[in-house]
Design a protein around this nucleic acid. Structure first.
Length: 485
RNA sequence: GGCUCCAUCGUCUAAUGGUUAGGACACGGGCUUUUCAAGCCUGUAACGGGGGUUCGACUCCCCCUGGAGUCACCA
């Protein structure tokens, strides 16, 4: 049974790399009929950000990725928990961790440490100066049980460290294969802090076991801490989950994506007008490609085709131009109604207005992101001033432009209102007229288009007519004729 | 610096010993066309280097080089 989990710390934004890991978790769980759970790793009291959990849930909801277990955001804004392995907040599981830490101390596999942060700092400085590996020097390991108890009784704060055994630790990464660490490289890391909270190593290992997690997917930056998790599993006598370290998402400087080199939060991508479909397609195929010659995938296809063993092991730089291209693709696939819905929050014009909706629909092939629409549809909402000279087709003159506009004006004035219902009918009617009257496309269509759009570059005149409607179209053509005088 | 991971066009990637090294984004050219997009066709562009193994290496092994990650009472 596949059970995956996303275990973010609620410190604010949802990192794009976290989103990718979550996506892979989700694909893996869905394709096998397993579960994908969300667990909140809020064990660092100093880094907690109020509202971060609600925010995180909102982001995943916006992406359409819903966990099967864990905190759920209700319609009324409250957060409830679903699933039988709860609580899904680590801060609510403190007793569990303490109990486990105690178990290891009793077994002699972990020990209390009374060293101050100052001493530890100095120790590390000294080690660094001597070019040694920085790791705890085991000063407190020599404390007897009674000594330790006395100091604790005396109110001295202490942490619990694991006693890393001799030997080496090997695990088979589902993406990278066997990885071995010599235990001498592994630090006697802290598993329980002096404030009674566990560190990541203990909390995650215990929870993954208690929540029956089968696959642990996480970023590559966790590889070097994996021996700690493995050692802990061994100490508890547990079978370790399958680990898979997904490649890092890199900035343009080829370093771990940071705010300096690119947008790191999913929210930023939404704010920049990317559609969730594009985001899922783009991020979901970063480091993983199910097909040699296909780029566009629905989430269903990705779920079906996802294969952990085919995930790349090298980091990936975000190709933003490709994201734009994908976004354009998904924008083009939207119906006029869907487009109006998606444009909410990005366009200041009234989205219930048919003119606005049609303008969005027509302009969607000329924009990359939802944020581009405001500017793109402006010429439809109000005709901007333009120079009369641009109304003239390159092979003609002002008198010619004026004459052609006059004839089209006549045609459109008499034309049935219904023709304005579709672009195709408008095009057919006008082209038929041009042919019938022995006119030229360029001499007619160029001035018409400019008259309607007020621009040298724009959609076809038929599309603009469709957007503007008969009345406004006639008004703009009349205005153009006046301007040409 | 120690440890670990990684290495195909500028970027994302396909290839799992035998291909003219394929696709996509971007870029160039062309077609279409009333303009701009879109669309269609097309071009430039890659196996980091050196050793092996093999009849044969992008594919397997080793070394080098280069890049990255990590070395907290953060995750």
């Amino acid at each position: 049974m596949v059970r995956t989990r996303l275990a973010p710390s609620p410190t604010g934004k949802v990192h794009i790399g976290n989103f990718r890991t979550a996506l892979f978790d989700y694909f893996l769980a869905r394709q096998s009929g397993g579960q994908f759970l969300l667990r909140i790793e809020d064990t660092d009291q100093e880094r907690l950000v109020p509202g971060a959990i609600e925010y995180l849930l909102r982001m995943f909801k916006a992406l359409g990725i819903t966990p099967d277990e864990g905190p759920v955001l209700q319609e009324d804004g409250t957060i409830t928990e679903v699933g039988s392995c709860g609580p899904y907040y680590q801060s609510a599981r403190l007793d569990i961790y303490k109990q486990h830490a105690k178990e290891l101390v009793e077994k002699g596999l972990a020990y209390p440490c009374f060293c101050t942060v100052e001493r530890l700092d100095e120790m590390r400085k000294a080690q660094t100066a001597l070019k040694q590996t920085t790791k705890y020097d085991r000063k407190c390991l020599s404390l007897t049980k009674t000594e330790a108890e006395e100091r604790m009784m005396g109110g001295e704060g202490c942490v619990i460290r694991i006693k890393v055994p001799e030997g080496s630790t090997t695990f088979c990464d589902a993406i990278r294969g066997d990885i071995t660490f010599d235990n001498s490289e592994v630090d006697d890391c802290i598993i329980l802090k002096s404030d009674g909270f566990p560190t990541y190593y203990l909390a995650a290992t215990v929870d993954d076991q208690l929540m029956s997690i089968s696959h642990v997917l996480r970023g590559e930056e966790w590889i070097s801490s994996t021996p700690k998790s493995l050692l802990l599993c061994k100490m508890f006598g547990w079978k370790a989950p399958i680990f898979a370290h997904v490649p890092l998402l890199l900035g343009s400087d080829k370093k771990k994506l940071s705010k300096r080199t690119g947008d790191t939060a999913v929210e930023e991508y939404f704010n920049h007008g990317y559609l969730k479909e594009a985001l899922i397609n783009f991020v979901g195929t970063l480091g993983f490609n199910p097909s040699a010659d296909q780029e566009i995938f629905t989430i269903e296809e990705l779920i079906e085709k996802f294969d952990l063993s085919k995930v790349n092991s090298a980091g990936a730089i975000l190709n933003m131009e490709k994201l734009d291209w994908m976004n354009r693709h998904y924008l083009m696939a939207l119906s006029i109604e869907q487009l109006a819905e998606r444009a909410q929050g990005f366009v200041s014009a009234d989205l219930t207005n048919i003119l606005v909706q049609r303008a969005l629909f027509v302009e969607r092939s000329r924009v990359s992101r939802l944020t581009d629409f405001d500017v793109a549809i402006a010429p439809y909402l109000a005709l901007l001033p333009y120079d009369a000279s641009i109304l003239v087709w390159k092979k003609a003159d002002a008198a010619d432009a004026s004459a052609h506009l006059q004839r089209i004006l006549t045609l459109l004035t008499d034309i049935d209102e219904n023709i304005f219902g579709t672009v195709d009918l408008l095009e057919a009617a006008i082209k038929e007229y041009i042919t019938r009257e022995g006119m030229q496309n360029g001499n007619t269509l160029w001035p018409l288009r400019v008259a309607l759009s007020g621009q040298e570059k724009s959609a076809t005149p038929f599309e603009v007519l469709w957007v503007l409607g008969k009345e406004e179209s006639l008004r703009r053509i009349e205005h153009a004729i006046a301007v040409l005088q």
